[in-house]
Design a protein around this nucleic acid. Sequence first.
RNA 1: GCGGGCGUAGCUCAAUGGCUAGAGCAUCUGCCUUCCAAGCAGACGGUUGUGGGUUCGAGUCCCAUCGCCCGCUCCA
Length: 670
Amino acid sequence: MPANSLEQVRNLCMRRGFVFPGSAVYGGVASFWDYGPLGVELLNNIKKAWWQDTIYTRNDMEGLDAAVLMSRKVWQHSGHEATFGDVLIENRKNNRRHRLDHLLLDQDPKLLGELLERSAPTWDPSDPQIDNLAQFCGSWLRHHDGQDSKVGFSYGLESIQRIAQLIKKGNSPVTAANFVFLLTNLAVRKQLAVGVLNEVGIIDPTTGEVGDWLQPRRFMGMFVTHAGPVQADPGTEEELASRVYLRPETAQGIFMNFAHVQRAMARKVPFGVAQIGKAFRNEITPGNFIFRTREFEQMEIEFFIKPPQFVKEGEKNDQQWHEEWVEQRFKWWLRYATSPSATLEERDATASRFRARAQTPDELAHYAKATTDIEYLFPGSLGWGEIEGVANRTDFDLSAHSKDVPEEDLKRLKLEPNHDSTEKLDYFDPDAKARYIPWVIEPSAGATRAMLTFLCEAYHDEVVTEPTKQQIDQIKSDAAMIRKNAEKKIKEAQKEIAAGREAKHDPATVEAFLNLLDETVSRLPESLTEVLTALDHEGAQNLEPVKKFRPPTEKLVEDCTRTVLRLHPALAPVKLAVFPLKKNKPELVELAQAIKERFQRHFRVVYDDSAGIGRLYRRQDEIGTPFCITVDFESLEDGTVTVRERDSMEQERVKIDDLPAYLLPRLQGE
RNA sequence: GCGGGCGUAGCUCAAUGGCUAGAGCAUCUGCCUUCCAAGCAGACGGUUGUGGGUUCGAGUCCCAUCGCCCGCUCCA
C-alpha cells in the first residue's frame, strides 16, 4: 500500500535528504523548498526520463531552454498581466471574490463619486499615492475648468471633493476607467476604508444585492523584478520601463521561439518543442508540502499542428491530436509510477490512482479551447491533484504575439491587434500550399509535482518480520483497555453535553476511533502499521491509555517493518549500493570500493560500511535503491558477490565481471 | 489573506510555574568472521522557532512575529 499520509512522505524527504525547508537558518520562508542530495537526483532522473521519452524517442520534437525573464510585452500580449495581477475584493455574504475594478465599473458612477467624497477625509496625506491622486485630480480639473495649473497641482482635498461632486452630478471630468484605476490603487494601499466601501452600498453583481465587503487586496500572480540596477517608485513610467516578470509558465518562451526552431531545424508542421524549467507564481494559497509552491518546475511541450481548416482527410485534427497527447502522457505517468516488480493487482491499483479529467468550460484558462487534466490521488486530505494539464491552446498565443493578424481571427480569439510585435508567427505549409498560424496542443506537467507523485506512489511500509503471537496478544489486550477507558470517557462526555456543558471529548469521534482501532487490530499481523496510524485519529486525542500504548507499538512497528520506496529504477536517486560484509577486513573494504568505482562513472552508486548489513539494506530500501551488492569472504576466493533486489529482498550470487550485463537491463526497468 | 491546531537535540518524544531541560533512535570513534532493526564501550549534540511581557523564578502563563499542518480559495 502506498503512503497513507503526506506527512510520512514529508518526513522521509526531510530525514533522508530529498527536500529541506528553504532558508531554514532564518526560520524558513513559506512555500520555498530546497532539493537535497537525493532530491536533486530524483528530480533530475524524472526530467531525464521525460526528456528522453518526449524528444529522443520521437521524430517530431525539439528541445529548448528559453530565458526565465522575458520582455514585459510578452506577458501583456499573452494576457497574463491582466489576468494575473488583480485587485480582488471578497463578499463575506457569499464568499465570492471579484476583481475590484470590474466591480466598481459595474456600479452607478454617482456611487463612485460618493465613495471618493466619503473616503477622502480618512486618507493619509503622507502616502505618495494620495499625492499622486491629488495631482491627477488637479490636472483633470484644469482640463475641465481651464483653471490655472498652479491651483490644480497643489495637494488639497478641495480638488478631490470637487471631482467627486462633478462625478455625482454625472458630469465627470475623467473616464470611469481612469477613476477606477485610481480607486483600485488606493484600495490596495488601504486608503479606501472597508467601512466607507460598505457605507455607500456596493452591489454584488452575482446577487444584485449590497455586499458585505472585506478589505480589497492585490493578488499579483506574477513576481515582479527589474532589468537594470536602478530602482524606481512602483507604478511610475520609469519603473514600468524596466519591469520584467518571472515567468509564470515556461510556455511563452517556446512561443517566442516557434519560428526560430522551425527555421533552424527545418521542421514541418506538425512538430513540437519541449522545455523544462522553473516557473514562478505568487500563489494565493501555497501549501501541501511541495505540491503547490511559488517556485516550481515545469516540463512543457508545445506541439504545433495544422489549423482545422487545413486538415486533410486521414490527417489528425486538433481534437485528435489532443486526445493522442492525453493518452501518451497518461501512459508515461503509469509507466514511471510502477515498479517493474509490481504484480498485476498492484498495477491495477496504481492505475486507479491516476485519472484524466476534462475541464468544464468555466475552469478553462483564457487561452484554452479544451483542457484535460491528468490527476493523481494523493494521500490524505490533498486527494485528487493535478499533475499535468493537456490543453488545446488553438492559435491563441502565436496570434497574440503576431502583428497583422486578420480581423476575423482577432475577433474569434478576443484579441486586440498587436502593434508591439515585429513579426507574424506564421508558417508556410508546403503541403497545403498555404500560410497559416499553427494551432498548438500543450501537455504541461509539473516536474516537482511529479516528484511528489512518484514518492507517494512508491512509499511502502511493509511488515517483513511477523510479530510473535505474544506481541499480537499484547496489542489486543491494550486495545481492549483503550476501549474500556474510552467508553467511560464517552459516557462522561455525554453527561456533560446533556447538562449543557462543554465536553472534553466528542463521543462520535471517539467512537469512530474505537471502530477504526478494532477493525485494524482484527486484521493483525498484516495491518500492523495501520494500527499505529489509527492512533493518530482525532478521536484518540487526550486518551491516557493511548499515550501509554503508543511507544511500545511504535517500537514494535519499527522492529517488524521496513520502509521501502518502490521507485521505478530509472528514477531511483541511487542505483546501486556496495557494502563489505565486515568493515574491519581491509580486503573486503578494498574490493567493495573497487566495485563502487567501477560503476560510478555510469550512474549514482554509493559505498557504505557504517552499520551492520541488515541496517545498510534498510537504509537503501528507504531511499529506493534498486540493488545492493555485498562483498563477503567468498568473494575474495571466487570473484562472486551477493546482489540483493529491493522489492523482493531476494539475493543472487553474481560474478563481479557479469555485473554490468546483470544490472544494466534491470536498471532500465526491463 | 481568514479560521482551527502545532513548534523542546538531526529524528520521535519526556519534564505539577521551582535544582545544571532528560530518554530512545540517529551520528561519530574504538573493538567484533553478525546477509536483512536491535553486539560492546565511549563521544558529540540545546539561547526550548524568534522577540517582548507577567513573575522572586517561564519549556510551561499572556502578546506579537515566523514557520509547519488542517479547512476556504486553485490548476503545473
